[in-house]
């Protein structure tokens, strides 16, 4: 982190000019693996989505668009789309803001108090299903830490037994788990801003809010936008935390898309419907991500 250049300065020149067979030998095993295992599943999913697939017997019949129509007529599917969108559009902005602010304060803080940084990145690699599981003991009304503390202040929320409570609890855990991701990237962005920028600005103002809003934020925005996009992509796949925390319940109230699709495919072995559902969702995700990518593409070039 010390020898930092401005972000996104890419070198185009190649290290080694000589071309020989070695480069193909080197790349061949990985290329074969990727071609073998990443191309076929997508085509297989497309095929299953038009078929009736019975485990053990394979494809028994092609049913045209029936699977798709079943999905589009299913209330659980639309509800899962809605609840996933709600989850993502609350969790991701909160994580972005918190991560950036924490990075700003860590950057301000003198180097000898650097210990905040490892502490604040600690949740980064924690297993999501384990965090969801631990979350039960934080949010249950029977002695859960979080619930008890809020109770003490007179705030009574039924976290585990209501739809909104369950969603809120999952989002809180998501924020705990993923803010460090934004934080870490924001630090890289803020470190890339040259000292002279701040020194020049300090001649004009002593208001740190201005430094934050007019220097730190715009100059680290390209980097932050990378964090935003990656968080968005990952959040749309959210699975572990709500699955372990609420199991999708009560009822189907916290059944995010991945959980619904997982149950459809693995518990009910309805591969046709599961595949159709997955492909519709893939289109939705691609459109959302493409819209964001077009707005944020500066960060990637």
């Amino acid at each position: 982190m010390h020898d930092l250049k401005l972000p996104f300065v890419r070198r185009s020149e190649r290290l080694y000019s000589s071309s020989n067979t070695l480069k193909y030998i080197f790349i061949l095993p990985a290329a074969l693996w990727i071609v073998a295992f990443t191309i076929f599943p997508v085509f297989a999913t497309i095929q299953y989505s038009f078929a009736n697939y019975v485990l053990g017997r394979g494809i028994t019949a092609y049913v045209g668009l029936e699977n798709y129509l079943n999905v589009l007529r299913s209330g659980a599917f639309w509800y899962s789309m809605f609840i996933t969108s709600a989850y993502v559009s609350i969790a991701v902005p909160v994580e972005l803001v918190l991560g950036f602010l924490l990075a700003w304060f860590v950057i301000l803080c003198p180097r000898e108090h650097n210990f905040f940084r490892p502490i604040l990145t600690a949740p980064l690699f924690t297993m999501e299903v384990a965090i969801g599981y631990l979350g039960i003991t934080l949010f249950t009304s029977q002695g859960g830490l979080f619930a008890e503390v809020l109770d003490y202040f007179g705030i009574h929320i039924l976290w585990m037994t209501t739809a909104y409570g369950g969603l809120a609890a999952a989002i809180i855990l998501d924020v705990w788990r993923w803010t460090p991701f934004v934080f870490l990237i924001a630090i890289a962005g803020l470190t890339g801003i040259p000292d002279e920028m701040y020194e020049a600005a300090l001649l004009e103002t002593s208001n740190y809010r201005h430094l934050l809003l007019y220097i730190a934020l715009p100059l680290s925005w390209p980097v932050l936008s990378v964090a935003l996009l990656l968080r968005l992509i990952e959040a749309l796949k959210t699975f572990g935390i709500p699955l372990a925390l609420t199991g999708g319940g009560p009822g189907i109230s916290t059944q995010l898309f991945s959980i619904l699709n997982y149950y459809t495919t693995i518990q009910f072995f309805d591969f046709g419907k599961g595949s159709a559902m997955a492909l519709i969702y893939l289109v939705f995700v691609s459109v959302v991500v493409a819209l964001f990518f077009n707005r944020l593409r500066k960060g990637f070039e």
Binding site: T38, F40, P41, V42, A44, T45, Y48, Y53, L55, L230, I233, L236, K237, F239, F257, S258, N261, Y262, T265, I266, F271, G274, S275, A278, L279, Y281, L282, V285, S286, V289, F293, F300
Partner: peptide, 21 residues
Amino acid sequence: FYSQRVMPPVVVLAPFFILLV
């Protein structure tokens, strides 16, 4: 590569399950 990342893993759950079977 990014497009690979965008695809939710659950999309290829069925094919991988069947492949492993």
